[in-house]
């Protein structure tokens, strides 16, 4: 099966600093891949490259088997990759529907002044939120009044509006309480059930163990280990991240 997202020998330098060195990474349909690593391991650079904010110096990116040039967030979105940023990027003063469709509103012809087709958006919003089991009291509540889990649900729902192949989640549970974290992990499971490829960046080992089918460990800009579900202990992860004790030949999982 062709992976939905495949990175081959991707490298990125900032001046003399090596941020990423020949990183290989793939995400299959219906698979959750977690990307872990200590600070400065290159996670953020990889997020920026996959979301289209930065371009790699060398290496190849394929989406659904086709070579893609992710030169801007818009290009990445058009290629089928949507990113949910850590700060969610929601406009607090807008309601759920307006946030879900922000920048991709459904609107009428120019002579109507690009009148927003609110009823179409509401219906689609209802379906997307239902598919994620996000419950809102009313679609016209400004998102500032929503809980952290609901806000995360709307941010993920926004990514799904354009039906992307791959969803990239940057630290989705970082600022959440216990029950809301559970909600977000459920959301990730639903993305997997929908047959999408999910790439999760996280530093929370518990979340990673619970949700990831595969774990890729970065250290100092290079991929140092890859584990499959059940094929590792928390100690394995920590030692791969910190380099305290290198697993056999730098590769822990069966590649």
């Amino acid at each position: 099966m062709t992976p939905l997202l495949q990175l081959t020998k991707v490298s990125k330098h900032f001046g003399g600093v090596r941020a990423l060195h020949e990183v290989d990474l793939s995400v299959d349909a219906g698979e959750v891949v977690a990307l872990v690593g200590d600070n400065g391991a290159g996670k953020s650079t990889l997020v920026k490259i996959v979301s289209g904010v930065e371009s790699p110096d060398t290496g190849e990116i394929r989406v659904r088997g086709e070579a893609a040039r992710l030169e801007s967030p818009r290009a990445a979105a058009e290629a089928g990759i949507r990113t949910v940023f850590q700060d969610l990027s929601l406009c607090d003063n807008l309601d759920a529907v307006q946030n879900l469709f922000l920048g991709q509103e459904r609107y009428g012809p120019v002579w109507s002044g690009r009148r927003v087709r609110r009823h179409v958006m509401e219906e689609q919003a209802q379906r997307v939120l239902e598919s994620l089991s996000v419950k809102l009291r009313a679609l016209n509540t400004p998102v500032v009044a929503l809980s952290g889990g609901q806000r995360q649900g709307i941010a993920i729902g926004r990514a799904l509006i354009s039906d992307p192949a791959v969803v990239l989640l940057d630290e989705p549970t970082a600022a959440l309480g216990v029950s809301q974290r559970g909600e977000v992990l459920d959301l990730i499971q639903r993305l997997r059930e929908q047959g999408r490829g999910v790439l999760v960046i996280s530093h929370d080992m518990k979340d990673v163990r619970q949700v990831a089918d595969r774990v890729v460990v970065l250290r100092l800009g290079a991929k140092v280990a890859e584990f499959r579900r059940g094929g590792y202990t928390p100690a394995d992860l920590v030692s791969a991240m910190t380099g305290a004790h290198e697993p056999t030949d730098g590769e822990g999982g069966d590649l």
Binding site: S89, C91, D92, N93, L94, G103, V116
Partner: peptide, 19 residues
């Protein structure tokens, strides 16, 4: 209140980065 321009106007005022 009725157009895409209106939503974008409020979005820019609400959170420029997000917009």
């Amino acid at each position: 209140t009725q157009t895409r321009y209106g939503i974008h106007l409020y979005a820019v005022g609400g959170d420029r980065e997000a917009a």
